[in-house]
Design a protein around this nucleic acid. Structure first.
Lengths: 222, 222
DNA sequence: CGACTGGTTGAGTGGTCTCAAGTCCTGTGG
DNA sequence: CCACAGGACTTGAGACCACTCAACCAGTCG
């Protein structure tokens, strides 16, 4: 709360609260950790969530803060990043519609291990700790489904690690691109990321990223 | 069951069942996913587990099989590996005393994503699906503790990914070594792994691993 | 002894980083 | 409107790292 107020003051933005999103019709939810909720559980969630819009550039939560609830991303792009001791940011991953932010730290009881910043304007539903606890009390099966989903994410994380470890920058870049262009290959995609941000994300230098992209352009792939 | 019988037949080994390990005194358990069990829960686990000894080289479970229970590693070293379509093995990670094998697949309801093979003689406690289910029924808080622990593991997996992505082979090798020598630096460690296995584990070529190790030997670090 | 396997070393090649310079775009002030 | 500054983007040259391929060594097994 304090944090959000501070952000509003800092950026002088209107942190609008809207109520138009219905969890039942929330299409992006289906690939997040809340994909297996019953209609009853969904309507509970719907009543206890708050929908917020964060403008571009606004930080949703900071590394080191204590999690107070879950952020369920409806639309927009969020970058999750860590700030090293020398002040440089390293992007850990991106989150899109359907992703739930901060659930690792929320459930593990740790402080946030990274910060989250809106890259585009972001619409996000917030559920506080009390809401989650009551949801779990009402239907304990939610807990098992969460465990199931987190185990799947853990497998995916390890597979990603395994498949990218020791691979070339070009391969890592290709992997990253396919994460963001899973549709038609002919589709034109506007990436709201700088070369430097892409480089940070795949653990490379901006120059190398550019060279790979130029090569692909020359070969007509892009 | 079928699998274990087949292994016994294949390797002509005696798959001894011993009952000397008491979960209450199981020291390695404290850094695994069962670190937060109450004494009551532990004694339940103790009554429903089966302790087995797998000799060197024996495969504990195979990639693609359906998980039927959890393997709680007491002592010995296990390699977790995937076999690619061209028949080559890639080592995903190693498991030591205290690690629980196969819990991701067990809870996510998926087939095993990798195989597990004993590198040294291994002592492992097996708890079947029914045992786990009843444990969770008796004390639902177990489920929450499991979720908590898996979330911590997920964070650790992402941090490992982030810190090693794009790093040099030498750095990855150093990371791997510290995982196995967290004690005194003067300690002599016998690694029951071939150079090729180490290379597979850190995503490099055996020659490169050897060169790094030779360098360290020349510099007196090792 | 010869075949085989795992460990080790060397030479050559290609990929990635570093550093540096040049280009394009955009906002700003005259 | 233009000149300019600043930033992101792009390109180039050199150094270094890791991979590939190849040879050699040590031990084991038949």
């Amino acid at each position: 709360m304090v944090c959000r107020k501070r952000i509003c003051m800092l950026y002088g933005v209107d942190m609008r609260t809207i109520t138009t999103i219905d969890c039942k019709n929330c299409h992006p939810r289906h690939h997040g950790i809340f994909c297996e909720l019953s209609t009853d559980e969904l309507s509970y969630l719907n009543q206890h969530k708050v929908t917020k819009i964060y403008p571009k550039q606004v930080v949703i939560f900071h590394e080191g803060e204590k999690p107070r609830g879950l952020y369920c991303l409806f639309s927009g792009l969020v970058k999750i990043y860590k700030t090293s001791s020398d002040g440089k940011d390293q992007i850990v991953r991106l989150a899109q519609g359907g992703d739930v932010l901060g659930y690792r730290s929320f459930f593990s009881g740790e402080m946030y291990a990274a910060s989250a910043q809106a890259i585009e304007e972001v619409t996000v539903c917030y559920i506080d700790q009390e809401g989650i606890n009551k949801l779990i009390e009402r239907s304990p099966s939610v807990l098992f489904n969460l465990l199931k989903k987190v185990c799947v994410e853990l497998r995916e994380a390890e597979e990603k690690f395994q498949s990218l470890m020791g691979k070339s920058v070009e391969e890592r870049l290709a992997y990253f691109m396919t994460m963001f262009v899973p549709k038609d290959k002919k589709q034109e995609v506007h990436l709201p990321l700088s070369r430097e941000e892409i480089a940070s994300l795949i653990g490379a230098r901006p120059e190398t990223v550019i060279r790979a992209l130029s090569d692909w352009k020359d070969q007509g792939i892009i």
